[in-house]
């Protein structure tokens, strides 16, 4: 039990906070129920995938500023190709978009490894590149999502049993578990943490640093593609201008207990953090508070939580 607390203390605190916030939402809006949760999960889906992609790269000791632009590329590709396509063709498009995501991530990773420039510089440049690519694919919001893709993220998962579990949440959990759990236990997963915590030590223990870094960025690309697809699925059209996912994903990763210096954290924390930030936003809207105050509060929460984390770290070092 103690070990579990030590290992997952932060995640548990986040889960408790989320539960409290949901309770608060119920108190503010007594008829907040299944449809509220469904809307919340659907809105959080692209943010969650963005945060997952960012988390993988940050764990491996990098940062990907191009994540929102890659999501835009994936979203518009899907919307453009799915317009007027049959259900089967749309399935092929889905696979293609996921492959494109992996390819974009691999290009990011390759450029970082080959140029030996800092991650921040390369992905800053690629932010403009992917943004431009998205504009070339679709120069104004348009296209369409396949009906079955739309159905995949809307509505409850088990309408016969309980309406409280939305499909979007199930989809998120299934996708993340299918990718992350086998990875975490594999050699590659270990290498990701190794190069994130100490690249030199990892190199000396025989980890192929370059290849692992490329894999980390490819994974981020895959998650970005999932995020872009879920965005297109929930709005029904493709949007070439990247959304606010870059800042939101960095915020969620930090709140979620992934150290920006790399090597520490997991995917659960950032996902919980995404939901916490979404619920706070929802609560403030329900309380009829000026939506602009929400931005101030989000910034403050981000800064205060990280400051507290810093203080705790200092205490521990002194002790």
């Amino acid at each position: 039990m103690k070990r579990l607390l030590e290992r997952h203390g932060w995640d548990m605190a986040l889960a408790a906070l989320l539960a409290l916030l949901l309770l608060a939402t119920r108190l503010i809006q007594p008829n907040f129920g299944a449809s509220g949760i469904e809307a919340l999960a659907r809105a959080a889906l692209p943010f969650a995938f963005a945060a997952a992609g960012m988390a993988v790269v940050v764990i491996a000791g990098g940062i990907d500023l191009s994540i929102a632009s890659m999501m835009a590329v994936a979203g518009v590709t899907a919307a453009r190709l799915m317009q007027g396509a049959s259900a089967g063709e749309a399935g092929l498009v889905l696979v293609l978009v996921l492959l494109i995501g992996v390819a974009m991530g691999t290009i990011n990773g390759l450029l970082i490894v080959l140029t030996r420039l800092p991650d921040i510089v390369v992905t800053l440049g690629m932010l403009f590149v992917w943004e431009g690519t998205a504009l070339l694919i679709l120069n104004a919001p348009g296209g369409a999502a396949a009906p079955w893709l739309r159905a995949l993220v809307t509505g409850p998962a088990l309408p016969a049993l309980t309406p409280m579990i939305p499909k979007a949440l199930v989809l998120l959990v299934v996708c993340l578990a299918a990718i992350w759990i086998p990875l975490r236990r594999s050699r590659l997963g270990l290498s990701l943490y190794a190069i994130g915590s100490d690249a030199t030590a990892a190199f000396r223990s025989g980890v192929a640093i370059g290849r692992t870094r490329i894999a980390a960025y490819a994974l981020a690309g895959l998650f970005a593609a999932l995020g872009g697809l879920s965005l297109t699925a929930s709005v029904g059209i493709g949007e070439p201008i990247p959304g606010p996912y870059l800042l939101a994903s960095v915020a969620a990763v930090v709140l979620g207990g992934v150290a920006l210096t790399g090597g520490r954290g997991g995917l659960l924390g950032p996902i919980l953090a995404v939901f916490i930030l979404r619920v706070i936003r929802l609560d403030l809207t329900l309380l009829a508070i000026d939506p602009n105050v929400t931005a101030i509060l989000e910034g403050t929460i981000m800064a205060v939580v990280v400051m507290l984390g810093g203080l705790l770290l200092m205490r521990r070092r002194q002790a």
Binding site: I63, L247, V250, A251, V254, L260, A295, I296, E298, G299, T300, M302, A303, V306
Partner: peptide, 10 residues
């Protein structure tokens, strides 16, 4: 990175 991002938001 986080601090300046946060103050920018605020």
């Amino acid at each position: 990175l986080i601090m300046t991002l946060a103050t920018g938001l605020i």
